[in-house]
Nucleic acid binder design. Structure first.
Lengths: 255, 255
DNA sequence: CGTGCTGTTGAGGACGATCAATGACGGTGG
DNA sequence: CCACCGTCATTGATCGTCCTCAACAGCACG
């Protein structure tokens, strides 16, 4: 089902640790300094906004459990999903770094979520004291940019089937990277459509194709991968843009 | 014509200054420290690569004059242009920050270009000594990401005409931001097509439409804006994602 | 004076959008 | 407990945008 994820881990901070170790933050001291400034934990219900379009940025938000998406609502009501976010991902770094920008971009909870916050002052202090942390954040932003580029390529060049398969592959790997090893992607067909730039109707047909082929499980009401190799092949997927060599190593990916 | 741009300014460093002042680097000392490490200047001919896919990153590259594009060549030979780059833009920050990543992304000169380089050691020293510089670079990356998001949205949601108009608007503003105030965009229809995710044939028809409408000048062999307000309107363009309030202020942009 | 790139034009076809309707499920309030 | 509603998933039909293929003209280059 869509609303269900692994129950929030003990603290939710383990995902943060995983993420930042992956970004090259190997010093335990730096990591602890980051943990120390993550203040409040708040539960957010599915389909509520975690970061509002245009809200005044006084603090940073980090996802600790659940799945969210960075998106923008257009004039005509349609929604473009730029990227999905998982535990350990920061939701509003862009606002912290370029506050004049991006009033229209928001983050929405796709499942029930748990978030932590860091007030800007603490952030500044911490960055000043831990230069390595600063680099890690820069890396996090770059990784996000890399994901945008890949999505751009995906939408621009690939046919609907590859496109959808691609997005699913990415989510599977990113879940794996934070030790969520299931085969189900906690996302609706509507979400997929908004991320892929396709109509829901067409996504539905594509999903059915993928099920018929055997790449996805026949489970109605859930996007569940049945044959990941087939899916990777259909997607022409190469996950190297994700900067997760450890996870990718057991993902037969070539070219 | 396409190959021609303003002749390279005295040093090319003025564009760099403009860019980084726009990114909030207001201290003259920080700026000077950046200038000091920009080493070699090299001329690159149109359609040569400035940064090769997979080249070993030992230095940073900054564009000092000319126009380039960040792109990737796909298996089938097609090219996706992620973004255009102008004097003051760094070409390979992504490699510096996430060297494990992005072997396939390259930067190509769209006109004759002049570049400067910074060796990684100098960069590290400079960043360590000038924390503000570090933030400015982070901002530069964020701005690039913002441009990727906008392009993503553009390709994903808009019809071909708006799409092309949008890209042209962006380039016009970005040129303006570095004091190049002409109405011609130094880009071919092929480039436009690769950036917009459309076929050249279709872009050609769209360009002709835009000319017929009067938004572009009737000049064959060049993309030249004739009526920017009309173009902005057709594009549904809102340039706020570019983080250039000073430039945008005289660009009647709303919503 | 060819060769190559860019721009231009025409015809046909495919992929995906749009519109419309229905079923299944879950939650809510009477 | 049941009626109601909203979201998600599904199906069919039609239509349009944009792609592909193919050819050719102009200009720049050697």
């Amino acid at each position: 089902m869509v609303g269900s994820m692994k129950p929030p881990q003990a603290s939710g901070l383990d995902a943060l640790a995983l993420k930042f170790r992956g970004l090259g933050l190997d010093s335990e001291a730096d990591l602890q300094s980051l943990f120390r400034i993550v203040r409040i934990r708040e539960a957010i219900n599915r389909s509520e906004n975690i970061v509002d379009a245009g809200s005044p940025p006084k603090q940073l938000t980090v996802l600790l459990a659940g799945v969210a998406c960075l998106h923008k609502r257009l004039e005509d009501g349609t929604r473009q999903i730029y990227s999905f976010q998982y535990p350990g991902d920061f939701c509003d770094l862009h606002r912290y770094v370029l506050p004049e920008l991006d009033q229209a971009v928001a983050v929405m909870a796709l499942t029930d979520c748990l978030i932590g916050t860091i007030c800007h002052d603490d952030m500044e202090r911490s960055l000043a004291q831990h230069p390595k942390l600063s680099l890690a954040f820069w890396r996090a932003s770059m990784l996000e940019a890399s994901i945008f580029r890949e999505r751009l390529l995906n939408i621009s060049r690939r046919a609907a089937l590859s496109r959808v398969a691609n997005i699913i592959c990415e989510q599977l790997i990113r879940l794996e990277a934070i030790n969520i090893n299931g085969t189900a992607i906690p996302v609706t067909q509507v979400d997929l459509a908004d991320a892929a730039g396709l109509s829901v109707v067409h996504v539905n047909r594509i999903v059915q194709d993928l099920r018929r082929i055997g790449a996805l499980s026949k489970e109605r009401r859930s996007i569940e991968v049945a044959d990941r190799e087939r899916l990777v092949e259909l997607a022409n997927f190469n996950g190297r843009y994700l900067n997760m060599p450890n996870v990718l190593s057991h993902w037969k990916i070539d070219a």
